[in-house]
Nucleic acid binder design. Structure first.
Lengths: 215, 215
DNA sequence: GTAATTTATGAAGGATCATTCAGCTTTGGA
DNA sequence: TCCAAAGCTGAATGATCCTTCATAAATTAC
């Protein structure tokens, strides 16, 4: 694994002019394309630069090493997913656990499968690079979002929201991965989505402590 | 990703003498050790050979390329897990879905966490190499094991065993991965195991069609 | 005992690729 | 218009490392 200290991963220079921004975007975009067409093992700085239409030197102005580039790309991708999930969760704060469960499943699957190809490519990056911190932070953030959502449920409470949130997150991640790998054979994606909804609902209901009905 | 055709991945020479067997074993063992200490990115043929106490040339007599070695190692590891899960499942064939569910969870987690370090190292290999076929086959095999187990349940049947088996397998894999990454913070492993049991049970019960009680 | 086969050696070849840097071009403000 | 700062270039460097092959040792078969 590539052990790289945090300092080295920072961008060397912050773009100030519009064309610099365009350059950085082009580099990001090119990186994804190279990952998709050639794979991480064949991703070279030269190839990325070529695809981006800039020179290698330019890349090194913004990313002091190859790792920095991949790291930044991964962070961007995970932030986008976390944000999307968090936004959807915010919209169903305080609802019943049934609604919460379904919303969570939908939000997660939608976010993860928005761009399956890119997600696949970035998954490779996440595993191969030394991104335990980054990925761990991503998991923690999603887990916290889920935990808060559970605590907001209107019709039930939970004795160990932390463990339940972790279990849900791991389950969602596992299923998203299975769906990403999946070809056209076997159950279709809608079927799997319904299965996942069924599973999460059943689990939450089993673990919920329902509020007494006042009367 | 490393695109390598099947032919190239086969061993060049099959060991016939006892010392050759010992050599191959030493190479496998050394590979795991190097993966653990240096990571896939720094795994070189020279380093593996050195650790195994043989020369590089010797390695190339059994594995025509670096990839072949990693490929073979991965296959070995996944076969061991599949076998272990299948054996445990065979032992609870025909039981109730409650027993089946708990057994499955235990078997999967035990098999996956038998050697967490090695599993972590090999996971990197699986993702970085072009092992879609291999990993897909592994998933399919485990899924088939689960499907047959479900069909054997004494007290219930299922309308879509394929989809349910897939969902269970993905869930188990997701949770196993979360537990592998996990440090000492957060819920402990026993808690998570119970959560997973709770989830799988609740799901199976929700999706089961229970046999009518004869009277 | 010896020929045939299997196994092991490791220096050298050759290819790839991350990274640098000295100099060039473009931009935006004064 | 002019210039300082920002942006860009890409050949050259140096390091890594996969793979080969001519040779030698060990083992087995007869």
């Amino acid at each position: 694994m590539a052990r790289t200290t945090g300092e080295q991963l920072k961008v060397r220079k912050t773009p100030h002019q519009a064309r610099a921004h365009a350059t950085v975007d082009a580099i990001f975009e090119a990186t994804v394309q190279v990952l998709l067409s050639d794979g991480l093992a064949h991703l070279t700085t030269t190839r990325v630069a070529e695809r981006a239409g800039v020179s290698v030197g330019t890349m090194y102005q913004y990313f002091p090493q190859k790792h920095s580039l991949l790291f930044a790309l991964l962070q961007r991708h995970m932030d986008a997913i976390s944000d999307e999930v968090a936004a959807a969760c915010a919209r169903c704060h305080g609802e019943t656990i049934e609604i919460i469960s379904d919303t969570l499943v939908d939000a997660f699957l939608d976010a993860k499968t928005r761009d399956v190809e890119a997600a696949r490519a970035l998954h490779v990056v996440a595993v191969e690079l030394d991104t335990d911190d980054l990925v761990g932070e991503f998991a923690r953030r999603n887990q916290a979002t889920i935990r808060e959502l559970l605590n907001s449920a209107s019709n039930a409470s939970f004795d160990d929201p932390e463990a339940i949130a972790l279990t849900l997150r791991a389950t969602l991640a596992g299923m998203a991965r299975a769906m990403m790998r999946r070809g056209t054979t076997g159950p279709d994606l809608n079927t799997l989505r319904r299965e996942l909804q069924s599973m999460c609902r059943a689990y939450l209901i089993a673990r919920a402590i329902f509020a007494k009905v006042e009367g």
